[in-house]
């Protein structure tokens, strides 16, 4: 039997804060779930409940305190993202797992085009080819061409979020982690996000999104996990 793309088992995260008298805080209670390929998996719940913590543990920005996260990697086979060595994680981030944070964090002095193309550059794609794809995405995201050479630092929140999403989708990873993808977006752009998720699924990407916006993302989710 084929393994699921992602199997989270007994994931638990606690932070030991040495600077505050060694206090421990645990934003996330034990959680387990399974994500199949092509699936859109929605995690929802109020803020502070540990939705983002799950994504960050999968992406290894956080070190899980307990539990396993089994990922069916093309390159490494079945691999526990909690234990995998750093270089494996870096390769997975380049080739198989994408992450879109809640806020775009980019370097000033880098153009919107280069920002959105960066994941492709990292995959070793030739610059010209990558930029052709990048331009397509920028116009699809409704970014006017005069902005393409400007730094996203100067953009509005909505524009920045579009660049942020474009960057995550462009690499067509096998697993895409989206943190509040529709926050700070207008209704029209929210629909655009839903379409992007659907298109990504059609291309073979499984999406895990984290949101409190059940109204927009709920209808397009194959599975939902409520954190209470």
């Amino acid at each position: 039997m084929a393994h699921p793309l992602l199997a989270v088992q007994g994931l638990y995260k606690a932070f030991l804060l040495h600077l505050i008298d060694g206090r421990t805080i645990s934003p996330l209670q034990e959680v387990s779930f399974v994500v199949e390929p092509h699936e859109h998996f929605l995690i929802y719940g109020r803020s502070g409940i540990g939705k983002t913590t799950i994504l960050k543990c999968i992406y290894r920005s956080y070190l899980a305190t307990a539990g396993q996260i089994w990922f069916a990697s093309q390159r490494f086979g079945r691999i526990d993202l909690v234990q995998a060595d750093e270089s494996a994680i870096l390769q997975l981030r380049e080739q198989e797992i994408g992450y879109c944070s809640q806020f775009l964090r980019v370097l000033p002095r880098v153009s919107a085009l280069d920002t959105i193309c960066e994941p492709l550059y990292r995959q070793g794609m030739a610059r010209d080819h990558a930029q052709a794809i990048g331009r397509q995405w920028l116009s699809q995201l409704g970014m006017s061409p005069e902005l393409w050479q400007a730094s996203p630092v100067t953009f509005s929140g909505g524009e920045q979020q579009r660049i942020n999403l474009g960057r995550a989708f462009i690499a067509a990873p096998r697993l895409l982690l989206l943190d509040e993808p529709t926050a700070s977006l207008d209704g029209e752009t929210k629909q655009l996000v839903v379409e992007m998720i659907r298109a990504a699924q059609a291309r073979g990407t499984a999406v895990i999104s984290v949101s409190h916006d059940l109204a927009v993302l709920g209808p397009c989710a194959d599975q939902q996990l409520a954190l209470l």
Binding site: L17, R60, S61, Y62, L63
Partner: peptide, 16 residues
Amino acid sequence: GLTDQIMEDPQHPYTQ
């Protein structure tokens, strides 16, 4: 560790 992990989830008191 990974730089983002060091920044977001530092383990050692000194790193924190």
